[in-house]
Design a protein around this nucleic acid. Structure first.
Lengths: 249, 249
DNA sequence: AAGGAAAATGCGGATTTCTGCACGAAAGGG
DNA sequence: CCCTTTCGTGCAGAAATCCGCATTTTCCTT
Protein backbone atom coordinates (compact mmCIF):
# COMPACT_ATOMS: atom_id res chain seq x y z
CA UNK A 1 0.00 0.00 0.00
CA UNK A 2 1.25 3.41 -0.96
CA UNK A 3 1.85 6.06 1.58
CA UNK A 4 -0.53 8.57 0.05
CA UNK A 5 -3.13 5.87 -0.35
CA UNK A 6 -2.81 5.08 3.31
CA UNK A 7 -3.14 8.70 4.28
CA UNK A 8 -6.28 9.00 2.17
CA UNK A 9 -7.68 6.12 4.06
CA UNK A 10 -6.79 7.61 7.39
CA UNK A 11 -8.37 10.90 6.46
CA UNK A 12 -11.56 9.22 5.44
CA UNK A 13 -11.60 7.26 8.66
CA UNK A 14 -11.05 10.28 10.83
CA UNK A 15 -13.76 12.24 9.08
CA UNK A 16 -16.30 9.52 9.50
CA UNK A 17 -15.61 8.66 13.09
CA UNK A 18 -14.33 12.00 14.33
CA UNK A 19 -11.41 10.24 15.92
CA UNK A 20 -8.89 7.55 15.22
CA UNK A 21 -6.50 5.62 17.40
CA UNK A 22 -2.98 4.84 16.33
CA UNK A 23 -3.44 1.32 17.56
CA UNK A 24 -6.61 0.70 15.53
CA UNK A 25 -5.17 2.07 12.35
CA UNK A 26 -1.99 0.13 12.83
CA UNK A 27 -3.94 -3.11 12.86
CA UNK A 28 -6.38 -2.18 10.13
CA UNK A 29 -3.72 -0.96 7.72
CA UNK A 30 -1.08 -3.50 8.74
CA UNK A 31 1.68 -1.10 9.40
CA UNK A 32 3.51 -0.24 12.58
CA UNK A 33 2.16 2.36 14.93
CA UNK A 34 5.19 4.48 14.21
CA UNK A 35 4.17 4.77 10.62
CA UNK A 36 0.66 5.72 11.55
CA UNK A 37 1.98 8.27 13.94
CA UNK A 38 4.22 9.71 11.28
CA UNK A 39 1.25 9.90 8.91
CA UNK A 40 -0.89 11.61 11.49
CA UNK A 41 1.83 14.09 12.19
CA UNK A 42 2.11 14.90 8.52
CA UNK A 43 -1.63 15.30 8.17
CA UNK A 44 -1.62 17.49 11.24
CA UNK A 45 1.07 19.71 9.72
CA UNK A 46 -1.15 20.14 6.70
CA UNK A 47 -4.03 21.03 9.00
CA UNK A 48 -6.04 18.06 7.85
CA UNK A 49 -6.46 16.55 11.29
CA UNK A 50 -5.68 17.43 14.86
CA UNK A 51 -3.07 15.22 16.43
CA UNK A 52 -3.58 14.24 20.02
CA UNK A 53 -2.03 11.77 22.38
CA UNK A 54 -3.06 8.33 21.22
CA UNK A 55 -4.52 9.23 17.86
CA UNK A 56 -6.10 12.15 16.07
CA UNK A 57 -9.34 14.08 15.87
CA UNK A 58 -11.26 15.38 12.90
CA UNK A 59 -10.57 18.98 12.16
CA UNK A 60 -13.96 20.07 10.89
CA UNK A 61 -15.67 18.63 13.89
CA UNK A 62 -13.35 20.43 16.18
CA UNK A 63 -13.26 23.78 14.42
CA UNK A 64 -16.96 23.92 13.68
CA UNK A 65 -17.75 24.02 17.36
CA UNK A 66 -14.89 26.34 18.09
CA UNK A 67 -14.70 28.39 14.99
CA UNK A 68 -15.22 31.79 16.58
CA UNK A 69 -11.55 31.79 17.51
CA UNK A 70 -9.50 33.03 14.64
CA UNK A 71 -10.48 36.35 13.24
CA UNK A 72 -7.21 38.16 13.03
CA UNK A 73 -7.05 41.81 13.98
CA UNK A 74 -10.42 41.36 15.61
CA UNK A 75 -9.88 44.39 17.77
CA UNK A 76 -9.41 46.66 14.79
CA UNK A 77 -12.21 45.09 12.85
CA UNK A 78 -14.61 45.67 15.68
CA UNK A 79 -13.69 49.35 15.69
CA UNK A 80 -14.32 49.54 11.98
CA UNK A 81 -17.61 47.75 12.29
CA UNK A 82 -18.66 50.09 15.06
CA UNK A 83 -18.10 53.13 12.85
CA UNK A 84 -19.86 51.51 9.92
CA UNK A 85 -22.95 50.88 12.00
CA UNK A 86 -23.47 54.64 12.30
CA UNK A 87 -24.18 54.80 8.58
CA UNK A 88 -27.11 52.45 8.88
CA UNK A 89 -30.58 53.92 9.21
CA UNK A 90 -33.95 52.40 9.84
CA UNK A 91 -35.53 50.83 6.79
CA UNK A 92 -32.47 51.01 4.57
CA UNK A 93 -31.75 48.54 1.82
CA UNK A 94 -28.09 47.61 2.15
CA UNK A 95 -25.63 45.57 0.11
CA UNK A 96 -22.99 43.85 2.18
CA UNK A 97 -19.98 42.08 0.68
CA UNK A 98 -17.94 39.31 2.26
CA UNK A 99 -14.97 39.27 4.58
CA UNK A 100 -14.53 39.01 8.31
CA UNK A 101 -14.93 42.72 8.88
CA UNK A 102 -18.43 42.58 7.48
CA UNK A 103 -19.14 39.54 9.53
CA UNK A 104 -18.10 41.52 12.55
CA UNK A 105 -20.43 44.29 11.45
CA UNK A 106 -23.29 41.83 11.29
CA UNK A 107 -22.44 40.63 14.75
CA UNK A 108 -22.56 44.00 16.47
CA UNK A 109 -25.60 45.33 14.65
CA UNK A 110 -27.97 47.08 17.08
CA UNK A 111 -30.80 44.63 17.74
CA UNK A 112 -33.63 47.06 17.10
CA UNK A 113 -32.39 48.27 13.74
CA UNK A 114 -34.66 46.94 11.06
CA UNK A 115 -33.13 47.07 7.63
CA UNK A 116 -32.96 44.82 4.60
CA UNK A 117 -29.61 43.28 3.81
CA UNK A 118 -28.60 41.70 0.54
CA UNK A 119 -25.39 39.74 0.62
CA UNK A 120 -23.63 37.10 -1.45
CA UNK A 121 -21.51 36.13 1.56
CA UNK A 122 -22.33 32.95 3.43
CA UNK A 123 -20.70 33.93 6.67
CA UNK A 124 -22.27 37.38 6.67
CA UNK A 125 -25.67 35.88 5.99
CA UNK A 126 -25.32 33.40 8.82
CA UNK A 127 -24.35 36.12 11.20
CA UNK A 128 -27.17 38.40 10.06
CA UNK A 129 -29.59 35.54 10.47
CA UNK A 130 -29.21 35.85 14.22
CA UNK A 131 -30.30 39.45 14.11
CA UNK A 132 -33.88 39.73 15.38
CA UNK A 133 -35.35 42.52 13.34
CA UNK A 134 -33.59 42.63 10.01
CA UNK A 135 -34.39 40.88 6.81
CA UNK A 136 -31.62 38.96 5.10
CA UNK A 137 -31.67 38.08 1.46
CA UNK A 138 -28.99 35.82 0.20
CA UNK A 139 -27.76 36.27 -3.32
CA UNK A 140 -27.36 32.77 -4.66
CA UNK A 141 -25.05 31.35 -7.26
CA UNK A 142 -21.93 29.29 -7.73
CA UNK A 143 -19.98 29.43 -4.50
CA UNK A 144 -16.40 30.62 -4.72
CA UNK A 145 -14.29 28.43 -2.51
CA UNK A 146 -11.69 31.03 -1.61
CA UNK A 147 -13.97 33.94 -0.96
CA UNK A 148 -16.95 32.20 0.58
CA UNK A 149 -19.37 34.20 -1.49
CA UNK A 150 -21.70 33.50 -4.36
CA UNK A 151 -20.43 34.63 -7.72
CA UNK A 152 -21.48 34.45 -11.31
CA UNK A 153 -24.03 35.86 -13.66
CA UNK A 154 -27.04 35.09 -11.56
CA UNK A 155 -25.78 37.16 -8.64
CA UNK A 156 -25.01 40.05 -10.91
CA UNK A 157 -28.35 39.81 -12.68
CA UNK A 158 -30.15 39.95 -9.35
CA UNK A 159 -28.12 42.96 -8.31
CA UNK A 160 -29.02 44.90 -11.43
CA UNK A 161 -32.67 44.53 -10.49
CA UNK A 162 -32.07 46.25 -7.17
CA UNK A 163 -31.23 49.68 -5.91
CA UNK A 164 -29.59 50.01 -2.50
CA UNK A 165 -29.20 52.98 -0.20
CA UNK A 166 -25.78 51.83 0.87
CA UNK A 167 -23.13 49.36 -0.16
CA UNK A 168 -20.73 48.17 2.52
CA UNK A 169 -17.61 46.87 0.90
CA UNK A 170 -14.93 44.79 2.55
CA UNK A 171 -11.70 45.91 0.96
CA UNK A 172 -8.46 44.07 0.35
CA UNK A 173 -6.55 46.87 -1.32
CA UNK A 174 -7.20 50.55 -1.63
CA UNK A 175 -5.04 53.31 -3.01
CA UNK A 176 -5.68 57.03 -3.61
CA UNK A 177 -4.63 56.71 -7.25
CA UNK A 178 -5.71 53.23 -8.21
CA UNK A 179 -8.92 52.99 -6.22
CA UNK A 180 -10.07 49.65 -4.92
CA UNK A 181 -8.42 46.57 -6.39
CA UNK A 182 -8.73 42.86 -5.78
CA UNK A 183 -7.27 39.57 -6.92
CA UNK A 184 -10.24 37.35 -7.75
CA UNK A 185 -11.96 38.06 -11.04
CA UNK A 186 -15.32 36.66 -10.03
CA UNK A 187 -15.35 38.60 -6.80
CA UNK A 188 -14.47 41.77 -8.64
CA UNK A 189 -17.46 41.36 -10.92
CA UNK A 190 -19.80 41.05 -7.97
CA UNK A 191 -18.34 44.04 -6.19
CA UNK A 192 -18.61 46.14 -9.33
CA UNK A 193 -22.27 45.24 -9.66
CA UNK A 194 -22.91 46.11 -6.03
CA UNK A 195 -21.25 49.49 -6.32
CA UNK A 196 -23.10 50.32 -9.49
CA UNK A 197 -26.48 49.75 -7.94
CA UNK A 198 -25.92 51.58 -4.64
CA UNK A 199 -26.46 55.25 -3.89
CA UNK A 200 -23.60 55.43 -1.43
CA UNK A 201 -20.55 53.23 -1.06
CA UNK A 202 -18.61 52.65 2.14
CA UNK A 203 -15.20 50.99 1.96
CA UNK A 204 -14.11 49.12 5.09
CA UNK A 205 -10.38 48.54 5.32
CA UNK A 206 -7.76 47.80 7.91
CA UNK A 207 -5.06 50.46 7.81
CA UNK A 208 -2.59 47.84 6.62
CA UNK A 209 -4.63 47.60 3.43
CA UNK A 210 -4.22 51.30 2.68
CA UNK A 211 -2.03 52.29 -0.24
CA UNK A 212 -1.79 48.81 -1.65
CA UNK A 213 -2.93 47.54 -5.01
CA UNK A 214 -3.68 44.25 -6.66
CA UNK A 215 -4.18 43.07 -10.19
CA UNK A 216 -7.80 43.80 -10.88
CA UNK A 217 -9.68 47.01 -10.54
CA UNK A 218 -12.95 47.16 -8.68
CA UNK A 219 -13.65 50.89 -8.86
CA UNK A 220 -12.13 54.36 -8.90
CA UNK A 221 -11.54 56.18 -5.69
CA UNK A 222 -14.18 58.78 -6.50
CA UNK A 223 -16.89 56.15 -6.64
CA UNK A 224 -16.44 55.65 -2.92
CA UNK A 225 -18.26 57.87 -0.46
CA UNK A 226 -17.02 56.72 2.92
CA UNK A 227 -13.70 55.27 3.99
CA UNK A 228 -13.68 53.48 7.31
CA UNK A 229 -10.53 52.25 9.00
CA UNK A 230 -9.59 51.58 12.59
CA UNK A 231 -7.57 54.82 12.63
CA UNK A 232 -8.93 58.13 13.93
CA UNK A 233 -10.37 60.20 11.09
CA UNK A 234 -7.64 62.82 11.38
CA UNK A 235 -4.76 60.41 11.07
CA UNK A 236 -2.19 61.62 8.56
CA UNK A 237 -2.24 58.33 6.70
CA UNK A 238 -5.77 59.15 5.63
CA UNK A 239 -5.00 62.62 4.35
CA UNK A 240 -4.63 61.57 0.73
CA UNK A 241 -8.08 60.05 0.83
CA UNK A 242 -9.69 63.05 2.46
CA UNK A 243 -8.20 65.23 -0.23
CA UNK A 244 -9.88 63.10 -2.83
CA UNK A 245 -13.23 63.92 -1.33
CA UNK A 246 -13.92 60.76 0.64
CA UNK A 247 -15.64 61.14 3.94
CA UNK A 248 -13.32 59.45 6.40
CA UNK A 249 -14.88 58.00 9.55
CA UNK B 1 -11.52 7.15 25.10
CA UNK B 2 -8.90 9.74 24.29
CA UNK B 3 -8.04 12.40 26.75
CA UNK B 4 -8.76 15.27 24.40
CA UNK B 5 -11.97 13.60 23.34
CA UNK B 6 -13.00 13.41 26.92
CA UNK B 7 -12.24 17.07 27.44
CA UNK B 8 -14.34 17.94 24.41
CA UNK B 9 -17.14 16.03 25.95
CA UNK B 10 -16.76 17.78 29.26
CA UNK B 11 -16.72 21.13 27.56
CA UNK B 12 -19.89 20.35 25.69
CA UNK B 13 -21.53 19.14 28.86
CA UNK B 14 -20.58 22.21 30.80
CA UNK B 15 -21.78 24.52 28.06
CA UNK B 16 -25.14 22.84 27.86
CA UNK B 17 -25.85 22.58 31.55
CA UNK B 18 -23.84 25.55 32.76
CA UNK B 19 -22.38 23.38 35.48
CA UNK B 20 -20.94 19.93 35.95
CA UNK B 21 -20.03 17.80 38.92
CA UNK B 22 -16.88 15.72 39.05
CA UNK B 23 -18.85 12.80 40.36
CA UNK B 24 -21.39 12.87 37.51
CA UNK B 25 -18.76 13.13 34.85
CA UNK B 26 -16.73 10.40 36.46
CA UNK B 27 -19.65 8.01 36.14
CA UNK B 28 -20.73 9.12 32.70
CA UNK B 29 -17.27 8.99 31.19
CA UNK B 30 -16.12 5.97 33.18
CA UNK B 31 -12.94 7.38 34.52
CA UNK B 32 -11.85 8.16 38.04
CA UNK B 33 -12.75 11.45 39.62
CA UNK B 34 -9.08 12.27 39.75
CA UNK B 35 -8.93 12.25 36.02
CA UNK B 36 -11.97 14.47 35.73
CA UNK B 37 -10.54 16.87 38.21
CA UNK B 38 -7.29 17.01 36.29
CA UNK B 39 -9.22 17.65 33.10
CA UNK B 40 -11.23 20.42 34.68
CA UNK B 41 -8.08 22.01 36.00
CA UNK B 42 -6.55 21.95 32.55
CA UNK B 43 -9.65 23.41 30.98
CA UNK B 44 -9.70 26.06 33.67
CA UNK B 45 -6.08 26.96 32.93
CA UNK B 46 -7.08 27.47 29.31
CA UNK B 47 -9.97 29.64 30.45
CA UNK B 48 -12.51 27.28 28.94
CA UNK B 49 -14.40 26.71 32.19
CA UNK B 50 -14.45 28.06 35.71
CA UNK B 51 -13.34 25.56 38.30
CA UNK B 52 -15.26 25.43 41.54
CA UNK B 53 -15.40 23.07 44.45
CA UNK B 54 -16.89 19.80 43.30
CA UNK B 55 -17.09 20.60 39.60
CA UNK B 56 -16.97 23.47 37.14
CA UNK B 57 -19.11 26.23 35.68
CA UNK B 58 -19.58 27.33 32.12
CA UNK B 59 -17.68 30.39 31.10
CA UNK B 60 -19.59 31.29 27.95
CA UNK B 61 -22.59 31.64 30.21
CA UNK B 62 -21.38 35.11 31.01
CA UNK B 63 -19.71 36.11 27.75
CA UNK B 64 -22.81 35.26 25.71
CA UNK B 65 -20.93 34.09 22.64
CA UNK B 66 -23.82 32.58 20.82
CA UNK B 67 -22.57 29.29 19.57
CA UNK B 68 -23.78 27.33 16.63
CA UNK B 69 -26.35 24.96 18.05
CA UNK B 70 -24.78 21.76 19.23
CA UNK B 71 -25.23 18.90 16.89
CA UNK B 72 -27.15 16.43 18.91
CA UNK B 73 -27.16 12.73 18.08
CA UNK B 74 -24.00 13.31 16.11
CA UNK B 75 -23.07 9.68 16.21
CA UNK B 76 -26.34 8.60 14.62
CA UNK B 77 -26.26 11.35 12.06
CA UNK B 78 -22.82 10.31 10.98
CA UNK B 79 -24.07 6.80 10.37
CA UNK B 80 -26.94 8.14 8.29
CA UNK B 81 -24.63 10.38 6.32
CA UNK B 82 -22.32 7.45 5.68
CA UNK B 83 -25.12 5.45 4.12
CA UNK B 84 -26.34 8.40 2.08
CA UNK B 85 -22.90 8.86 0.57
CA UNK B 86 -23.24 5.51 -1.16
CA UNK B 87 -26.04 6.94 -3.30
CA UNK B 88 -23.78 9.58 -4.75
CA UNK B 89 -22.08 8.91 -8.04
CA UNK B 90 -19.54 10.78 -10.06
CA UNK B 91 -20.94 13.70 -12.01
CA UNK B 92 -24.37 13.71 -10.41
CA UNK B 93 -26.46 16.80 -9.97
CA UNK B 94 -27.80 16.69 -6.44
CA UNK B 95 -30.26 18.76 -4.41
CA UNK B 96 -29.48 18.93 -0.74
CA UNK B 97 -31.82 20.40 1.83
CA UNK B 98 -30.90 21.83 5.20
CA UNK B 99 -30.46 20.30 8.62
CA UNK B 100 -27.52 19.01 10.55
CA UNK B 101 -27.67 15.56 9.05
CA UNK B 102 -27.06 17.01 5.64
CA UNK B 103 -24.29 19.11 7.00
CA UNK B 104 -22.76 15.95 8.32
CA UNK B 105 -23.14 14.41 4.90
CA UNK B 106 -21.26 17.30 3.37
CA UNK B 107 -18.53 16.83 5.91
CA UNK B 108 -17.78 13.20 5.19
CA UNK B 109 -18.07 13.39 1.44
CA UNK B 110 -15.25 11.40 -0.20
CA UNK B 111 -12.68 13.95 -1.37
CA UNK B 112 -12.49 12.63 -4.91
CA UNK B 113 -16.17 12.65 -5.67
CA UNK B 114 -16.92 15.39 -8.12
CA UNK B 115 -20.58 16.24 -8.25
CA UNK B 116 -22.67 19.37 -8.46
CA UNK B 117 -24.66 20.31 -5.40
CA UNK B 118 -27.54 22.75 -5.26
CA UNK B 119 -28.62 23.76 -1.81
CA UNK B 120 -30.64 26.51 -0.15
CA UNK B 121 -28.96 25.74 3.17
CA UNK B 122 -26.27 28.06 4.42
CA UNK B 123 -24.60 25.58 6.70
CA UNK B 124 -24.59 22.84 4.10
CA UNK B 125 -23.11 25.20 1.56
CA UNK B 126 -20.37 26.28 3.93
CA UNK B 127 -19.47 22.71 4.64
CA UNK B 128 -19.52 21.74 0.98
CA UNK B 129 -17.31 24.69 0.23
CA UNK B 130 -14.45 22.88 1.91
CA UNK B 131 -14.79 19.97 -0.43
CA UNK B 132 -12.01 20.02 -3.00
CA UNK B 133 -13.65 18.64 -6.11
CA UNK B 134 -17.34 19.41 -6.01
CA UNK B 135 -19.21 22.39 -7.28
CA UNK B 136 -21.58 24.14 -4.93
CA UNK B 137 -24.40 26.32 -6.08
CA UNK B 138 -26.28 28.24 -3.50
CA UNK B 139 -29.94 28.89 -4.04
CA UNK B 140 -30.46 32.45 -2.89
CA UNK B 141 -33.48 34.19 -1.49
CA UNK B 142 -34.96 35.49 1.70
CA UNK B 143 -33.26 33.71 4.57
CA UNK B 144 -35.51 31.91 6.99
CA UNK B 145 -34.23 32.56 10.47
CA UNK B 146 -35.37 29.29 12.01
CA UNK B 147 -34.36 26.96 9.28
CA UNK B 148 -31.17 28.59 8.07
CA UNK B 149 -32.14 28.16 4.46
CA UNK B 150 -33.19 30.40 1.65
CA UNK B 151 -36.90 30.38 0.94
CA UNK B 152 -39.33 32.15 -1.31
CA UNK B 153 -40.34 32.36 -4.90
CA UNK B 154 -36.88 32.94 -6.27
CA UNK B 155 -35.57 29.69 -4.85
CA UNK B 156 -38.52 27.78 -6.21
CA UNK B 157 -38.26 29.42 -9.59
CA UNK B 158 -34.60 28.40 -9.84
CA UNK B 159 -35.45 24.87 -8.86
CA UNK B 160 -38.05 24.54 -11.59
CA UNK B 161 -35.35 25.30 -14.12
CA UNK B 162 -33.28 22.36 -12.94
CA UNK B 163 -33.44 18.61 -13.03
CA UNK B 164 -31.49 16.64 -10.43
CA UNK B 165 -30.46 13.01 -10.31
CA UNK B 166 -31.01 12.88 -6.60
CA UNK B 167 -32.63 14.90 -3.85
CA UNK B 168 -31.34 14.41 -0.34
CA UNK B 169 -33.93 15.49 2.11
CA UNK B 170 -33.41 16.14 5.79
CA UNK B 171 -36.63 15.03 7.43
CA UNK B 172 -38.33 16.18 10.60
CA UNK B 173 -41.33 13.87 10.50
CA UNK B 174 -42.10 10.83 8.45
CA UNK B 175 -44.98 8.40 8.69
CA UNK B 176 -46.02 5.43 6.52
CA UNK B 177 -49.50 6.89 6.10
CA UNK B 178 -48.97 10.61 6.11
CA UNK B 179 -45.66 10.75 4.29
CA UNK B 180 -43.22 13.52 5.08
CA UNK B 181 -44.55 16.48 7.02
CA UNK B 182 -43.03 19.64 8.38
CA UNK B 183 -43.98 22.71 10.36
CA UNK B 184 -42.66 25.69 8.41
CA UNK B 185 -44.71 26.69 5.40
CA UNK B 186 -41.88 28.33 3.52
CA UNK B 187 -39.61 25.36 4.05
CA UNK B 188 -42.30 23.00 2.87
CA UNK B 189 -42.62 24.90 -0.40
CA UNK B 190 -38.90 24.58 -1.05
CA UNK B 191 -38.85 20.89 -0.26
CA UNK B 192 -41.80 20.28 -2.52
CA UNK B 193 -40.06 22.00 -5.36
CA UNK B 194 -36.89 20.00 -4.80
CA UNK B 195 -38.74 16.69 -4.79
CA UNK B 196 -40.66 17.58 -7.91
CA UNK B 197 -37.53 18.24 -9.90
CA UNK B 198 -35.47 15.22 -8.83
CA UNK B 199 -35.42 11.75 -10.35
CA UNK B 200 -34.84 10.03 -7.03
CA UNK B 201 -35.56 11.19 -3.50
CA UNK B 202 -33.73 10.05 -0.39
CA UNK B 203 -35.19 10.86 3.00
CA UNK B 204 -32.71 11.09 5.86
CA UNK B 205 -34.23 10.70 9.30
CA UNK B 206 -33.21 9.78 12.80
CA UNK B 207 -35.24 6.84 14.03
CA UNK B 208 -36.87 9.11 16.61
CA UNK B 209 -38.48 10.99 13.71
CA UNK B 210 -40.14 7.87 12.39
CA UNK B 211 -43.91 7.58 12.69
CA UNK B 212 -44.40 11.20 13.62
CA UNK B 213 -46.34 13.87 11.81
CA UNK B 214 -46.60 17.61 11.74
CA UNK B 215 -49.03 20.12 10.38
CA UNK B 216 -47.97 20.55 6.79
CA UNK B 217 -47.49 17.96 4.16
CA UNK B 218 -44.35 17.83 2.09
CA UNK B 219 -45.01 14.71 0.05
CA UNK B 220 -46.59 11.28 -0.01
CA UNK B 221 -44.63 8.28 1.09
CA UNK B 222 -44.59 6.84 -2.42
CA UNK B 223 -42.73 9.86 -3.73
CA UNK B 224 -39.73 8.81 -1.72
CA UNK B 225 -37.29 6.27 -3.11
CA UNK B 226 -34.82 5.75 -0.28
CA UNK B 227 -35.22 5.90 3.46
CA UNK B 228 -32.06 6.23 5.47
CA UNK B 229 -31.93 6.00 9.24
CA UNK B 230 -29.25 5.03 11.71
CA UNK B 231 -30.96 1.66 12.19
CA UNK B 232 -29.96 -1.48 10.34
CA UNK B 233 -32.10 -1.96 7.24
CA UNK B 234 -33.82 -5.01 8.67
CA UNK B 235 -34.96 -3.37 11.87
CA UNK B 236 -38.61 -4.08 12.58
CA UNK B 237 -39.40 -0.41 13.03
CA UNK B 238 -38.71 0.04 9.33
CA UNK B 239 -40.96 -2.75 8.17
CA UNK B 240 -43.95 -0.53 7.44
CA UNK B 241 -41.79 1.56 5.15
CA UNK B 242 -40.31 -1.39 3.33
CA UNK B 243 -43.80 -2.65 2.71
CA UNK B 244 -44.65 0.62 1.05
CA UNK B 245 -41.92 0.05 -1.46
CA UNK B 246 -39.21 2.30 -0.08
CA UNK B 247 -35.67 1.08 -0.36
CA UNK B 248 -34.36 1.17 3.17
CA UNK B 249 -30.63 1.60 3.66
C1' DA C 1 17.68 -2.37 -17.28
C1' DA C 2 20.89 -1.33 -13.65
C1' DG C 3 22.56 1.53 -10.07
C1' DG C 4 22.15 4.66 -6.52
C1' DA C 5 20.18 8.41 -3.83
C1' DA C 6 16.26 9.58 -1.21
C1' DA C 7 12.33 8.38 1.14
C1' DA C 8 9.71 5.26 3.83
C1' DT C 9 9.33 1.76 7.25
C1' DG C 10 10.09 -1.15 11.31
C1' DC C 11 12.42 -1.96 15.62
C1' DG C 12 14.54 -1.46 20.28
C1' DG C 13 15.27 1.36 23.97
C1' DA C 14 14.88 5.76 26.51
C1' DT C 15 11.52 9.21 27.73
C1' DT C 16 7.11 11.30 28.46
C1' DT C 17 2.25 11.20 29.25
C1' DC C 18 -1.83 9.34 31.18
C1' DT C 19 -4.41 7.24 34.71
C1' DG C 20 -5.84 5.23 39.03
C1' DC C 21 -4.86 4.75 43.84
C1' DA C 22 -3.42 6.09 48.50
C1' DC C 23 -2.92 9.38 52.04
C1' DG C 24 -3.08 13.71 54.38
C1' DA C 25 -4.86 18.46 54.04
C1' DA C 26 -8.54 21.59 53.11
C1' DA C 27 -13.29 22.99 52.40
C1' DG C 28 -18.10 22.81 53.24
C1' DG C 29 -22.38 21.61 55.67
C1' DG C 30 -25.13 20.75 59.53
C1' DC D 1 -17.22 21.22 66.26
C1' DC D 2 -17.44 16.94 63.76
C1' DC D 3 -18.14 14.47 59.68
C1' DT D 4 -18.22 14.06 54.76
C1' DT D 5 -16.69 15.42 50.42
C1' DT D 6 -13.23 17.34 47.65
C1' DC D 7 -8.41 18.55 46.70
C1' DG D 8 -3.52 18.12 45.91
C1' DT D 9 0.48 15.29 45.65
C1' DG D 10 3.39 11.48 45.01
C1' DC D 11 3.80 7.10 43.06
C1' DA D 12 3.52 3.10 39.97
C1' DG D 13 2.06 0.62 35.94
C1' DA D 14 0.63 0.99 31.29
C1' DA D 15 0.45 3.21 27.08
C1' DA D 16 2.15 6.49 23.78
C1' DT D 17 5.93 9.05 22.00
C1' DC D 18 10.50 10.14 20.60
C1' DC D 19 14.99 8.98 18.72
C1' DG D 20 18.55 6.70 16.26
C1' DC D 21 19.59 3.14 13.18
C1' DA D 22 19.21 -0.71 10.02
C1' DT D 23 16.53 -2.39 6.24
C1' DT D 24 13.46 -2.07 2.53
C1' DT D 25 11.00 0.36 -1.03
C1' DT D 26 10.49 3.93 -4.40
C1' DC D 27 11.92 6.70 -7.84
C1' DC D 28 15.11 8.92 -10.87
C1' DT D 29 19.16 8.99 -13.78
C1' DT D 30 22.15 7.00 -16.81
Amino acid sequence: MLKSERQEHILREVNIHNKVLCSDLSIKLRVSEDTIRRDLNELAEQDKVIKVHGGALSKSYHTSTYRQAEVYSLQEKTIIAGKAVTLLKEGMLVFVSGGTTNRELARILPPHLSATFFTPSLSTAIQLMEHPSSEVILLGGKVSRNAGISVGGEVIRRLTELRADLCILGTNSIDPEEGITDSDWEVVQVKKAMIKRADKVAALALSEKLNSTQRMKVCDINQIDYLITELPARDSRLLAYRKRGLEVL
